[in-house]
């Protein structure tokens, strides 16, 4: 595990291949929940938590169940089940332990199961940190770190977008472009400006 490798993962996950603006994962939630900052922030923190945890869990599932028993073709099914079960579990725990926390971001949890960002990062981790079904050195840490960075990238895009869209409420936007179309155009411009980071060398 080297610092340089971690930095590369950070820059590419947050800026160059931003989960929303470049990989288009979690786009549905991004467009639907970014109208105001508060719910956007709650959603982002929920997503970040789930991505990090599921990166860790799916790594264990793949490394110690699927690879030894030669079941790697069950990757998609097993991952989505594990993620769904985990999210369900978290939701139940939060509801019991902290009703306040549940009200703040619990309502977003069921949505996260079908958020492509979560499954996407899990699959991506396997693609990047397993070579021919053998884990590369420190691949567990890389996976979790990449999960964290993708979560950060999601939060960044979400915050920028919600701020902009809140301001647009006051603007005299042409009727045909209200809401969805304009949100996509803004995302396109943000994506263009993030291209400034492309070709980064560390």
């Amino acid at each position: 595990m080297s610092l340089q490798e971690l930095l590369t993962i950070f820059i590419s996950a947050v800026f160059i291949y931003n989960v929303i603006l470049s990989r288009f994962l979690g786009l549905c939630s991004f467009i639907a929940i970014s109208k105001e900052t508060k719910p956007a922030l709650a959603m982002s923190s929920a997503v970040m938590f789930v991505i990090v945890m599921s990166s860790a869990i799916t790594w264990f599932v793949y490394r110690f169940l699927l690879v030894p028993f030669n079941l790697t073709y069950l990757r998609t099914i097993s991952f989505i089940l594990v993620i769904a079960a985990f999210v369900q579990l978290v939701e139940m725990i939060i509801r019991k332990v902290s009703p306040y926390l549940y009200r703040a971001f619990g309502i977003y949890l069921p949505l996260i199961t079908v958020n492509c960002a979560v499954l996407g990062v899990a699959v991506l981790n396997i693609d990047m940190f397993f070579l021919k079904n053998k884990a590369v050195a420190a691949s567990f840490y890389y996976s979790v770190f990449q999960g964290l960075c993708v979560g950060l990238g999601y939060t960044l895009a979400m915050l920028l977008m919600s701020g902009i869209r809140e301001r647009l409420e006051l603007c005299n936007v042409p009727k045909a472009f209200k809401d969805f179309p304009l949100a996509f155009v803004i995302a396109a411009i943000l994506s263009l400006s993030f291209m400034g980071f492309s070709g980064f060398k560390s």
Partner: peptide, 10 residues
């Protein structure tokens, strides 16, 4: 697309 003068974000 944003509504013209005074409304552009970028």
């Amino acid at each position: 697309v944003f509504g013209g003068l005074g409304q552009n974000i970028f």
